[in-house]
């Protein structure tokens, strides 16, 4: 398999910029295994990312890749998906990218329930800019901008996504590569907005400042803190503190998907306009023919 995913990597661009022990690669590899598993077409699969270490993954994938601007990946992806409903569009974002500067786009993408798969790499810090506080950082954690410990409470992004209207919400960690692979696969297969929070270690910028000595220690920590939803319901509030609840946390297969709802409404309008409008809405407009 390791060799197989290379088909979807720009190997000539390696080595990557990530630090040794960084968890981003684990999730990226899991994603590529899903691409292979699902037999996604290279020319019809587009990864849109923002800015950050996690977003840099787009630089290495041999797929259609749009490395956009900080926080706006979901907005760009919305344009891509609406223009080409036949594409499989995946968004790579970070906790700063997707939940701070891009938080508004996140909740609106959830609300629209547009058929995108958003993988949010949550490392509880701003890795790329040197370990500043992120909106998912726990109270008490240290960062370069929370020198005396974080005092603001963090987001629970999965609950946020669910409340905002995402129809598939899941969480996994880099310590559970198989689980995350399954979640990404189900997310891509799901029709509607799929939000997948991937908890990843950032040993360089987070671990170092928070008494987690090595990458391995960080992965271990993630593993021991993980509980399934079935286990979680049996725990008290106190017992749940600090735990990472994993698995598919919310699924609504009947929620109307935005692009399809738009197309149905547009088709109805076109029909109402009658003979004056001669356009087959069901036909995907082929870009290639315009050459």
């Amino acid at each position: 398999m390791a060799l197989e995913i290379e088909r979807f990597l720009h190997t000539e661009r390696l080595p990557h910029i990530w630090c040794p022990g960084c968890g981003l690669g684990i999730i990226t590899a899991a994603f590529l295994r899903v691409v292979i598993d699902l037999g996604l077409e290279r020319d019809k699969t587009v990864v849109v990312s923002g800015i950050g270490c996690s977003s840099r993954a787009a630089n290495y994938l041999d797929l259609g890749t749009v490395h956009s601007i900080h926080g706006r990946a979901l907005a760009v992806a919305t344009g891509v998906k609406m223009a080409r409903p036949d594409f499989t569009v995946i968004v790579f974002t970070g906790d700063g990218d997707g939940a701070a500067i891009g938080g508004n786009h996140l909740i609106h993408a959830c609300r629209r329930n547009i058929d995108l798969t958003c993988i949010l790499f949550n490392n509880s810090t701003y890795g790329m800019t040197g370990g500043q506080t992120s909106p998912t950082m726990a109270v008490g954690d240290r960062s370069t901008t929370a020198r005396y410990g974080q005092v603001e409470p963090p987001f629970d992004l999965c609950r946020l996504a669910e409340a905002a209207g995402a129809s598939f919400v899941a969480r996994g960690t880099a310590a559970q590569a198989r689980l995350i692979e399954r979640l990404i696969k189900e997310g891509i297969q799901h029709q509607g907005f799929s939000f997948i929070e991937a908890v990843v270690p950032c040993p360089t910028e987070y671990g170092r400042r928070n008494a987690l000595k090595s990458p391995l220690e960080m992965l271990d920590n993630e593993r021991t803190r993980s509980v399934t939803q079935a286990q979680a319901v049996k725990l008290t509030q106190e017992e749940l503190a600090g735990k990472i609840v994993t698995g598919v946390l919310h699924l609504d297969e009947d929620a109307p998907e935005f692009q399809q709802a738009y197309a149905a409404s547009a088709r109805a309008q076109a029909e109402r306009a009658g003979a004056r409008v001669q356009i087959d809405m069901t036909q995907k407009l082929p870009v290639g023919e315009q050459k």
Partner: peptide, 8 residues
């Protein structure tokens, strides 16, 4: 995107 290529 999608025009017989997959650009970065």
């Amino acid at each position: 995107l999608g025009l017989d290529e997959h650009p970065h």
